[in-house]
Amino acid sequence: MEVRTIKVFTTVDNINLHTQVVDMSMTYGQQFGPTYLDGADVTKIKPHNSHEGKTFYVLPNDDTLRVEAFEYYHTTDPSFLGRYMSALNHTKKWKYPQVNGLTSIKWADNNCYLATALLTLQQIELKFNPPALQDAYYRARAGEAANFCALILAYCNKTVGELGDVRETMSYLFQHANLDSCKRVLNVVCKTCGQQQTTLKGVEAVMYMGTLSYEQFKKGVQIPCTCGKQATKYLVQQESPFVMMSAPPAQYELKHGTFTCASEYTGNYQCGHYKHITSKETLYCIDGALLTKSSEYKGPITDVFYKENSYTTTIK
């Protein structure tokens, strides 16, 4: 009895394709271990004539594949690729409408935090270190965002349907971005203890939790000093293409032309909904596939993004 075979390709990165001759009487799992086709788990399936010449994702289970996976995804987590594939199996079914010149995501599976993050990423200057993220990001900007969303979920250790947080998501993504040249110098002034300067680099240099107003941050924000008295913390120097200011959701007025974009969060910790506000020729609110415009805006804002380049204080 002759062994019926077909020729397929296996890959971990969709760049390096490895030619395989597979036995049609055995499952993919018996031949390769966990195997995925377009995100779908085909591990328990036997090869079919229609699979001839198709590319299958496999887990990096030998040295060659491990090197290829690390170079593309910059992670050695053995569960990463499987999590990416199972997320992709959902995100490829989502709709990605162009809204006001940006790629958004039609609401499904509690994905409003991903839509808000995706919209924000198209408006701030950011370059990702893992080629996987950078490639998928370019495709997302062009309207094909399924891979990018699935990668975000995998890097953030999230599953489809789980509630997510924009600030946490951005923080994970910033860790995989090139923020080497970003720098922030802060000064804390206390009447009792004097003053202390701190220099922050990388992710810490672009994120701040405690106030939404970048102007206020430049002037000074009140913080408790270690001595128990009130101290003032203010920005001395900022070198970065953008800054992200966050605070627990509270009524906040966004003035046209003073910011790049913002995240609105309605609801409580267990259950809520994100919308995205962007400042173009007027203010726009993007909620999944829905767009509304207004000249002014007041609502429960939790993150505001500002364009920056270089700032030095005039406070002496």
Rank of each mutant, 00 (worst) to 15 (best):
V185A: 02
L133F: 04
C182K: 03
K233V: 12
Y306V: 01
A140Q: 03
F174T: 03
L88P: 05
N110V: 03
W94M: 05
D287R: 00
G257N: 08
C261H: 00
L254R: 00
L200N: 07
T75W: 04
H51I: 05
T27E: 14
L133N: 01
F174K: 01
Y265Q: 01
R139F: 08
H74Q: 11
V12S: 07
L119R: 01
E68V: 04
R139P: 05
S50Y: 11
V42N: 07
Y214H: 03
S240M: 00
L151S: 06
K229V: 08
T120M: 09
E308N: 11
L119A: 07
L290S: 15
T103W: 09
V67I: 14
M26L: 10
L17I: 07
E168Y: 07
C271Q: 11
T91F: 02
T226F: 09
T199R: 08
T91D: 04
Y138D: 14
I223H: 14
T11K: 06
T211H: 08
Q20H: 14
T260D: 06
D41T: 11
S213E: 06
K233Q: 14
E68N: 06
E125T: 08
D77P: 04
E264Y: 02
A250E: 12
Q98R: 14
A146Q: 09
T120Y: 04
V58S: 07
C149V: 14
C193F: 01
S294Q: 14
K106P: 05
R83L: 10
M207V: 08
A145E: 04
N178I: 01
F32P: 05
Y137R: 03
E296R: 10
A177L: 06
T120V: 13
L235S: 01
E162L: 00
H18V: 07
T211V: 10
G161V: 04
A108E: 08
V99A: 08
P130I: 05
W94R: 04
Y234H: 07
A146D: 08
K293E: 14
K219M: 11
K158Q: 05
E308R: 06
T43K: 10
K106I: 09
I152E: 00
L283D: 00
D165P: 03
L88D: 03
L126Q: 01
C261R: 00
S171E: 08
L102C: 06
E68I: 05
Y138S: 13
Y284E: 11
F128I: 04
N16A: 08
P249L: 01
R141D: 04
I45K: 12
M170K: 00
